[in-house]
């Protein structure tokens, strides 16, 4: 009689006793995105600033058609709504990806959730991909809502021949801003620092994107033209204009966005932090003071 194995006992000498089946990585990412979306929708502050806030401003601007010079003049003589709608869609895409991701991922890092995830068999990138996936869903949904509001209530014409260019532009822009959003968390030292730092980034993006080109010194205008929201606006607005010839893809601006995306990706790969940052310093100094106290005894 050969030795009988105790049911359920480990067999450490065999090459890893694996029970069950590994969930596939795409399944894991989609699943994570669904949980993140649920978390997003249950968080009223996040939902408000990402969805309601840009929508309200968008509608307000379309209702009042404010004058004044800004960058959108370049796209005259088309109607104001026709220029403003894609500009706001670009802004909303940035808010749903860059801003929302920088906030959310920082919060999960500082709460030690990333750290806990690291101790599980979930590939840690799948967890971050879930965050990105949910932010992309929100971004696309918001684009759609703005387009519908613009079309139904403000007479925005949809240039059907330019739709593929528009979809491609939003995809490239959202991906670039998502990468930048995750990368930005490396510079955010704590949960409390997240709102001011992400707001500062948003302000820089808005200023550079809508700066009135004719009124500023050439050098300032040139620096402003490097920033990614400006490129997204410049790539997206033409896809709404009747004078644009099909296919209307602004390759130069998409290329610039792609470079920004790669910069973001490099930042993520080389700078991303999994451990809570605010706690790390405190724990370290506590350890040190304990040591010196023991030394004295």
């Amino acid at each position: 009689m050969t030795t009988t194995k105790t049911p359920g006992a480990l067999e450490p000498d065999s090459p890893t006793p694996m029970k069950g089946k590994w969930p596939s990585v795409p399944h894991l990412i989609v699943n994570q995105a669904r949980y993140q979306l649920r978390i997003f929708m249950r968080n009223p502050a996040a939902a408000f600033f990402t969805v309601i806030f840009p929508l309200v401003i968008f509608i307000g601007v379309l209702v009042f058609e404010p004058g004044g010079k800004n960058f959108l003049e370049e796209f005259e003589p088309s109607r104001y709504q026709q220029r403003a709608t894609p500009a706001f869609i670009a802004f909303a895409v940035m808010g749903a990806t860059l801003t929302a991701l920088a906030m959310r991922v920082t919060v999960t890092r500082e709460r030690g959730i990333l750290r806990r995830v690291q101790g599980t068999p979930l590939p840690k990138w799948a967890y971050v991909a879930g965050h990105v996936g949910s932010s992309l869903v929100v971004a696309y949904a918001l684009c759609f809502v703005m387009l519908v509001v613009g079309t139904l209530f403000f007479g925005v014409d949809i240039e059907w021949r330019l739709i593929p260019a528009g979809i491609l532009t939003i995809a490239v822009g959202a991906a670039a801003f998502a990468a930048l959003g995750v990368a930005q968390t490396a510079w955010i030292p704590s949960e409390t620092a997240a709102p001011p730092l992400t707001n500062a980034t948003t302000l820089v993006m808005l200023t550079t994107a809508f700066m009135p080109v004719s009124d500023v010194p050439r050098g300032v205008g040139w620096v402003a033209s490097l920033f990614p929201l400006r490129h997204l606006v410049e790539a997206l607005v033409p896809t709404y204009l009747p004078q644009t010839a099909a296919p209307g893809i602004q390759w130069g601006h998409l290329g610039a966005l792609a470079i920004w995306g790669l910069i973001g990706l490099a930042g993520v790969i080389f700078g991303f932090k999994w451990e809570p940052q605010a706690d790390a310093g405190a724990a370290e100094s506590q350890k040190r003071s304990h040591r010196s106290r023991r030394g004295k005894r």
Binding site: M18, K19, G20, K21, W22, P23, L28, N31, Q32, Y35, R38, I39, R42, N43, T108, R111, G112, I113, R115, R116, T120, P121, L122, D279
Partner: peptide
């Protein structure tokens, strides 16, 4: 010292973590 997503219920948290294991 680590927290969970406060927006999820314990049932959802446990189900989410469970979905990562074979």
């Amino acid at each position: 010292d680590s927290r969970t997503d406060p927006e999820l219920t314990p049932r959802e948290c446990v189900a989410m973590f469970g979905s990562w294991y074979p």
